[in-house]
Design a protein around this nucleic acid. Structure first.
Length: 475
DNA sequence: CGTATTTGACCAGCGC
DNA sequence: GCGCTGGTCAAATACG
């Protein structure tokens, strides 16, 4: 029996070995069996063997689980490897597409620059021509005469002019013009633009005796002094116009507790374009951005419209009325719009009372009345019909226009103007299109192709006049 | 450390 | 000539 006991001990030791990785309680139970009963009978041995077998079986199950886990892991790794290969292939394909798109963009850019250069050359040529300068001078005089006449007739020309004329109408922006030329700097009813030749280079008759160089410098100086101003409600420090600017100064200006910031264009070294940003003294939620000068370098598509605007605006301020030109850039915008502008209290004014001739686009006025005789060109109405893609969703301007179209009084809502302002300050493409529209108003010219490049959807609308809905203007 | 912004100084034009 | 004002410069400072 002792042999049996020894054999049991050996077996139990083996069992203990096998169960070493098992639960501690099992091991303790087996050892107790050995110590307490050195003379275990065969039944006990059998029971113990069964117990041992169970533990070995469990151990095998554990090992089987490990194998299965490892197999799963290997399969998973294999699957990940396949996925990696697929992703890599996808990445390669996308890189290839990106390269192709880059090539397309490069080609478009090249065409854009060539076209822009061509346009600049044509415009420059026109501006340099002596006859054009004579015409400009004549037109300027007629513009001043027209304004003087308008003042005599006490036609409402804008908030500040109303104050100057001694009327009781408040200096209220709710009645300010959507587009007007105004004095941004003082309330002087005189016209230093004309009365003071020193403030702005004047293209007087003496130019007739000057050479082309002098004419060119005078024209350039005048173009530099003429300004385009945009009024918009914005919490931002500046509106998004697609250009790169560097702040180079800040000053407190007379009559306004808000400082005026000075920026210069940094798209290219030596670009003469400047802009001033200042909050309106009467309503500090309004940001007034004033542009001056003409870019001397290729512009990004988003900024092209603003450049077109400033050029067209300065051209308009110089070219005045009743003259047409073969060059649409030099044609007179007031041929179409000025009479209505001058006679409509909500549309436009013409003023030379600023040290610099300035045209202002006012996006802060919710009371623009669509029933006015004034008709926006189709460019300006494009947002009403802009196709809406499922991915990008409706342009905020479209949303508001859709809402506004339900109004019965034909007035732009506050929401409308807020959306316009928001779009102007956050969406360069909107700013571009808007500026192109204004340029179109002022220059009576077709939309630049560059805008078509920048905003293809908008461009499609513009090229398809059937898409243009003018109902809200005629309501 | 390079770039952008700030801010006081400076200049030119203008009115008195 | 002097002072006021708008505009620009450039050194100092901030920021990423």
């Amino acid at each position: 029996m002792e042999f049996v006991g020894k054999e049991e001990k050996r077996v139990f030791k083996e069992m203990d070995f096998f169960s070493s990785s098992g639960s501690d309680s099992s091991r303790i139970e087996l050892r107790r069996d050995v110590s307490e009963d050195g003379h275990s009978n065969e039944l006990d041995t059998g029971l113990n063997l069964l117990t041992t077998n169970r533990h070995v079986s469990e151990r095998c199950k554990v090992e089987d689980k490990d194998v299965s886990r490892k197999e799963l892991e290997m399969n998973r790794r294999s699957s990940s490897s396949n996925e990696f290969i697929i992703l890599k292939g996808e990445l390669d394909r996308m890189n290839s597409e990106n390269n192709q798109l880059r090539n397309v963009i490069d080609q478009v850019k090249k065409q854009f620059y060539e076209l822009q250069h061509h346009i600049m050359t044509v415009v420059q040529h026109q501006q340099n021509s002596k006859s054009e300068n004579q015409q400009i001078h004549k037109i300027s005089m007629q513009m001043v005469d027209a304004e003087s006449e308008a003042r005599k007739q006490q036609i409402f020309l804008g908030p500040k002019q109303f104050v100057n004329q001694g009327t009781t109408r408040p200096d209220d922006h709710s009645d300010s013009a959507i587009i007007h030329v105004q004095d941004e700097y003082d309330n002087n009813v005189q016209q230093p633009w004309i009365a003071n030749n020193n403030k702005v280079p004047r293209l007087d008759s003496s130019d007739d005796n000057n050479d082309d160089k002098n004419n060119e410098s005078a024209a350039e100086a005048t173009m530099k002094k003429a300004r385009v101003s945009v009024r918009a409600r914005s919490e931002a420090t500046t509106i998004s116009d697609g250009c790169q600017w560097r702040k180079y100064g800040q000053k407190m200006a007379k009559g306004n507790p808000c400082p005026r910031a000075y920026y210069r264009c940094t798209e290219a070294v030596g670009c003469p374009v400047r802009k001033q940003v200042q909050r309106c003294a009467e309503d500090r939620s309004i940001l007034v951005t004033t542009y001056e000068g003409k870019h001397n370098h290729p512009l990004p598509p988003a900024a092209m419209a603003m450049a077109s605007t400033t050029t067209a605006a300065t051209t308009m301020l110089l070219s005045g009325s009743s003259y047409s030109s073969s060059n649409p850039l030099m044609s007179n915008p007031f041929d179409t719009y000025a009479p209505t502008m001058l006679s409509s209290p909500n549309m436009a004014t013409l003023s030379a009372s600023s040290p610099f001739p300035t045209i202002t686009l006012d996006l802060t006025n919710p009371s623009f009345n669509g029933t006015s005789q004034f008709k926006l060109p189709q460019h300006f109405q494009l947002f009403q019909n802009q196709p809406q893609t499922s991915s990008s969703g409706p342009h905020p301007f479209n949303q508001i226009l859709s809402h506004q179209s339900k109004l019965s009084n034909g007035q732009f809502s506050v929401e409308f103007m807020d959306a316009a302002t928001k779009a102007l300050t956050t969406d360069p493409s909107f700013s571009s299109a808007l500026m192109a529209a204004v340029a179109s108003i002022m220059g009576n010219k077709p939309l630049p192709n560059t805008i078509n490049n920048a905003t293809p959807e908008i461009a499609r609308n513009m090229s398809d006049s059937s898409m243009v809905n003018t109902d809200f203007l005629n309501r």
